[in-house]
Amino acid sequence: MAAQDFSGALPDARDIERMAEIALSRIPPPFADHLANVVLRVEELADAETLAAVGLTHPMQLSGVYHGRPIGEKSAWDVASYPDQIRLYRKPILAEWHDTGVDLQRLVTHIVVHEVGHHFGLSDDDMHALEDSSGAGE
Rank of each mutant, 00 (worst) to 15 (best):
A2T: 02
A3Q: 08
G8E: 06
G8Y: 08
L10S: 04
P11N: 00
D12P: 00
A13G: 05
A13P: 06
R14W: 12
R14F: 11
D15P: 02
D15L: 06
I16A: 08
E17T: 11
E17R: 01
E17D: 09
R18I: 03
R18V: 00
A20D: 07
E21V: 13
E21R: 15
I22S: 02
I27W: 01
I27G: 04
P28M: 06
P29I: 03
F31I: 03
D33A: 10
D33G: 02
L35D: 01
N37W: 12
V39P: 00
R41A: 03
V42K: 02
E43T: 06
E43S: 10
E44D: 15
L45K: 02
A46G: 10
A46Y: 05
T50H: 09
G55L: 07
T57Y: 01
H58N: 09
P59T: 01
M60A: 14
M60D: 15
S63N: 09
S63R: 10
S63K: 02
V65F: 07
Y66W: 14
H67P: 03
G68L: 13
R69P: 04
P70H: 14
G72A: 12
E73L: 15
W77T: 08
W77M: 15
W77L: 14
D78T: 08
A80M: 12
S81Y: 13
Y82E: 15
Y82C: 12
P83M: 02
D84I: 04
D84K: 04
D84F: 06
R87T: 13
R87I: 15
P92L: 04
L94F: 15
E96H: 11
E96L: 10
H98Y: 14
D99H: 14
G101E: 02
G101S: 10
L107F: 11
T109K: 00
T109H: 15
H110C: 06
I111G: 00
V112G: 10
V113Q: 02
E115A: 02
V116E: 03
H119D: 00
H119G: 03
F120L: 04
G121D: 11
G121V: 05
S123K: 08
L130W: 08
L130P: 00
E131W: 06
D132P: 05
D132E: 14
S133T: 11
S133F: 11
S133I: 05
S134L: 09
G135S: 00
G135K: 05
G137N: 14
E138A: 12
